[in-house]
């Protein structure tokens, strides 16, 4: 086996740190993933991320993790987010606008009630790359 260089060791350390961080994030009650592929970004995903951010700040919520991931494969239904409440099946919301974000945040993220009108599917979604 070839010897590891300092740079390679550094990368391994960073990767391990990243995994530790991911484990730590399980303390959150809810996770909102905004899908940020080229399709999502072109359709307004950053604005959607901003709208969720505004909700988190305005309502002073500290137990919700806001993050992003890549394209989920349904480019024509972007902007799209996946909402995961701890212990419940993930829900994917499609064709989003900042107005819809407000409703989803209040009803689903804070109230626990799925907004069926905006949801695409429940239970089969993954948020990893």
């Amino acid at each position: 086996m070839p010897k590891l260089t300092i740079e390679e060791l550094e990368k391994l350390r960073e990767r391990a740190k990243k995994q530790t961080f991911l484990r730590e994030t399980t303390d959150y009650r809810a996770k909102i993933t905004v899908h940020m592929g080229t399709c999502g970004i072109a359709a307004g995903a950053r604005e959607i991320m901003n709208a969720f951010l505004k909700e988190v700040q305005e309502k002073d919520v500290t137990d919700v993790l806001l993050t992003n991931s890549g394209c989920a494969g349904l480019c024509s239904r972007e902007p799209m987010v996946t909402v995961e409440i701890k212990g419940q099946a993930p829900v994917k919301y499609v064709d989003l606008t900042p107005e819809k974000v407000k409703v989803i945040f209040e009803k689903h993220v804070l109230g626990g009630e799925i907004v069926q009108d905006y949801a695409l599917g429940i239970g089969s979604e993954k948020t990893d790359y």
């Binding site: 960073e14 740190k17 990243k18 961080f21 991911l22 905004v34 940020m36 950053r46 991320m49 901003n50 951010l53 806001l66 993050t67 992003n68 991931s69």
Partner: peptide, 10 residues
Amino acid sequence: LLTLVLGHPE
């Protein structure tokens, strides 16, 4: 920049 930081804090 904020979106990148929040999405990938590590």
